[in-house]
């Protein structure tokens, strides 16, 4: 059950577009093949935002520049405007420090590099970074190659809770910058454990007359998301509602719709629905942008 409600044209007084929210893109590399999967995504996101790309790599000794590039899997042509940031110490801590030191930073990295993921868990560096609840992070599952990644279609997954509204702003901003299509996806679950938070809007309990209820619900959903997510008023969203398990459903829609990026609000922990966000990251076939929502 997947498709759009394309006719939504609800008008709402929206907040003005904020200044660009990303000034620095941090790309951790470790010389493993998998880590290179994140390079085209980081480059493109830096280009779209007009941000500086920082390649963060960790080693005890600084090597010659050409040797470093070769080790990281970078071509010389790919380093124009790139800041090579050599750090010593624990890789995760170095990346975290970089993200804290640089204003308006976005981390773009692989979920794991050399080793296979152990069950649902990502690589040690990614897990350590996620534990610190970075404000924004793009995770790239390394299996599919992204040699010439372009952002043409964004899928914004939204569970209807107010905490997820902040994801709308970055998604809309990226769509605006890239001229990309943006689809808002709500997966109607039997019961959303967070759905009783004040201001939550889940799929309706009562659908008295579908011909009226669904347009009204879609209007309300989009009004809340845009107004509270500070999305630009000029941005057009298609709204899609599906039923099923949130993680697998988001991933499936992302694949069906050839999404280039999934944007999700993330509560900073995995406990209330241990698998949904991880399932999306692992199986959607595209990078996933997590926006930390308190």
């Amino acid at each position: 059950m997947t498709a759009a409600i394309p006719e939504w044209n609800g008008a709402v007084e929206r907040r003005k577009t904020k200044p660009r929210t990303v000034e620095n893109v941090i790309l951790p590399l470790d010389g493993q093949n998998f880590s290179q999967s994140a390079i085209p995504i980081a480059r493109e996101l830096a280009r779209l935002h007009g941000a500086t790309l920082h390649v963060v790599y960790v080693g005890e000794q600084a090597a010659a520049a050409q040797d470093t590039l070769k080790w990281l899997g970078l071509k010389s042509s790919e380093t124009r405007g790139v800041v090579m940031d050599h750090r010593k110490g624990n890789p995760a801590e170095r990346v975290i420090h970089s993200a804290r030191d640089l204003p308006r930073a976005l981390i773009v990295m692989c979920t794991h590099t050399g080793q296979q993921m152990n069950g649902e868990r990502f690589g040690a560096v990614a897990e350590s970074i996620l534990l610190t609840k970075p404000e924004r992070i793009v995770l790239v599952a390394p299996e599919p190659d992204h040699p010439a990644w372009k952002l043409r279609s964004i899928l914004l997954a939204h569970d209807g809770t107010p905490a997820c509204h902040p994801a709308a702003g970055p998604a809309a901003e990226l769509a605006h910058l890239a001229g990309a299509q943006i689809i808002a996806l709500h997966v109607a679950t039997r019961r959303n454990p967070r759905g009783e938070e004040p201001g939550s809007l889940s799929a309706p309990r009562y659908v008295d007359q579908p011909q009226h209820e669904w347009p009204a619900w879609a209007d309300e959903f989009m009004s809340r998301m845009l107004a509270m997510g500070a999305a630009p008023s000029s941005m057009h969203f298609d709204l899609v509602v599906t039923g099923g398990q949130p993680g697998s459903e988001v991933a499936q829609v992302a694949r069906e719709r050839n999404a280039d990026l999934v944007v999700m609000g993330w509560h900073g922990h995995w406990d209330h629905d241990p698998s949904a966000t991880r399932v999306v990251i692992r199986t959607s076939g595209c990078p996933v942008f997590l926006v930390y929502c308190e």
Partner: peptide, 14 residues
């Protein structure tokens, strides 16, 4: 078997 739920059954089943 669908309880607890907070959405209509036609949303769940289609």
């Amino acid at each position: 078997s669908y309880e607890p739920r907070s959405v209509a059954m036609d949303v769940i089943l289609g």
